[in-house]
Design a protein around this nucleic acid. Structure first.
Length: 103
DNA sequence: CAGTTGACGGCCC
DNA sequence: GGGGCCGCCAACT
């Protein structure tokens, strides 16, 4: 299993109506030092239809302006469609962050 | 082959 | 509290 494969697996496991941080995904993928790699993995994003990259946000709950789909506003709309609320352009992490028991 | 960059995170000032 | 710097890994030039 490649590094990217793991990352994609984790991203696809993110429950609907929940968001995860890059660090969180990296940690679940096996290494907490892959935050940047996670970003790159989602950047190449081979399957934007099956990989909900919009559920991955920065540690602050902020989304990237360089979002591949057309901008942070698109990502925000997708998240809102999943029932996730925003507070001042930031996802309410305390409420919607994916609480991973341990994986 | 070596240097630089990147959808980040954490610590220091 | 806000801003800046360094570190991590993999891909790109």
């Amino acid at each position: 299993m490649n590094t990217y494969e793991k990352i994609y697996e984790v991203v696809k496991r993110i429950p609907k109506g929940t968001v995860a941080t890059y660090g969180q995904v990296a940690r679940l993928a096996g290494n907490s030092h892959w935050a940047r790699v996670v970003g790159y993995a989602l950047h190449v994003n081979p399957d934007n239809g099956e990989i909900p990259c919009y559920r991955v946000v920065s540690k602050d709950g902020r989304v990237s302006e360089a979002f591949a789909f057309g901008g942070a506003n698109i990502q925000r709309r997708l998240l809102e469609a999943d029932g996730i609320e925003f507070r001042d352009d930031c996802v309410i992490m305390e409420k919607y962050q994916w609480e991973t028991p341990f994986y």
